[in-house]
Design a protein around this nucleic acid. Structure first.
Lengths: 217, 217
DNA sequence: GAATTTATCACCCTTTCGTGCTATTTACCT
DNA sequence: AGGTAAATAGCACGAAAGGGTGATAAATTC
């Protein structure tokens, strides 16, 4: 993806010890080029364009601007820059926010130095290093399944009922659903009644919500 | 998540050398318990319930039933079993299919034995080991779907209207919303009309759908 | 201080929904 | 062949939702 120049790295990390430790680590590693380190991301617009980092190590909790907002801005300024988030906790919400905002990797601060180095190299060649715990959360989000997958309720809808439900999820009125399926409004009503019974709801909105949250629809 | 019993493992892998190699590896590793190995997944319904594996190593390309279908069935039979996919190539489509079908990890066959072992332990305690390349693909999928972050449409709802919208998203009727906010049904109606105008919809269901899909609500 | 926005309430009228009950045809099960 | 479930359709009634119009008071903005 990139040539074999040194990988230019910028650090945003409010903890001084950590920041200096990582700076030292980067400077001591061949193949990496330390480009700068800052305790906060407030002036990042002025820093990134000049420093032209290949990889940014971004602390997620910083005074002033959060690492998540900072990640967004970095990607906006230099899309080719890879952002590696560093955090103490694997906060579910923050992980997803960071990912949506363009972060390419997600590591815990307690990760050993050698692994941080390889994560940097990894993210630079197009990988997305992350802890397997975080990976699981991401996957789970994909699968949109309940925690330990033990009990997914089975509402036992007939194929037709499922079709009708899908139309409902499109926001259609009875009349529209009837037209869409070439059946009478009364039939639609009939199906919907059965759907309500099976889903244990009693309004279109509730049915749609339940369908969206629990089913594939 | 689990107790500290041995981790029971079943292998599905059509390549004999690989299968036997992994069998040997598992048997030689303390903490793991080899429970069975098969060259294909065609009789998996008969095997899984009896063997009760904690982790299944699943080749993705097998004669007869594909590893992806097999993963689905394993999860259906024993949701608590973790499925670790093994593959030669990082085929984008297959990765996603496997994930959607309940796979909890995704490794390349060329992964060194020690890492396979740690991946097994990892997946058993709730992690999702995967190569960083695969992780990147998963993240990219995440990132491309929502236009998100910087440009989220602003419908300019008043605080009150937002409140009402939230109630609507809870599936409440006008009456319930009125009670919840100590206002009359007519007022609720009024707010909802304004919400519809701003969101450009004309039914509760549509409003709720739009709210769910585009807003935070 | 005038204009705009926001929140509130009211009345009327039409359409859509939710529900109870019934009935016919098809298809599948054993 | 008889039983069961699904899909279809109808009727009827009351409740809920949606559209139109208008009005008042408070807060905010200009």
């Amino acid at each position: 993806m990139q040539n074999d120049q040194k990988i230019r790295i910028v650090i945003y990390e409010d903890n001084r010890d950590l920041r200096e430790g990582m700076t030292f680590l980067l400077q001591a590693t061949p193949g990496l080029e330390f480009a700068g380190a800052f305790p906060d991301a407030t002036n990042l617009e002025m820093q990134i364009p000049g420093l032209k980092p290949d990889v940014v190590l971004m602390d997620i909790d910083m005074p002033g601007r959060s690492g998540i907002d900072a990640a967004t801005i970095v990607k906006a300024l230099r899309p080719e820059t890879q952002v590696l988030m560093l955090t103490v906790f694997e906060d579910e919400e923050k992980v997803f926010q960071a990912i949506r905002n363009g972060a390419s990797g997600y590591l815990l601060k307690r990760t050993p130095p050698t692994e941080i180095i390889s994560a940097i190299q990894d993210v630079h060649i197009g990988g997305s290093p992350m802890t397997s715990t975080i990976a699981r959360r991401v996957l789970r989000f994909f699968q949109q399944q309940p925690p330990s997958g033990s009990s997914r309720p089975d509402y036992d809808l007939s194929p037709r009922e499922l079709e009708i439900l899908k139309s409902m999820v499109k926001g259609y009125s009875y009349k529209l659903i009837a037209e869409e399926h070439f059946i009478s409004v009364d039939t639609v009503r009939s199906h919907i009644r059965h759907i309500y019974e099976k889903l244990q709801v009693n309004s279109k909105t509730e049915a749609v919500l339940k369908a969206l949250r629990e089913k594939i629809v």
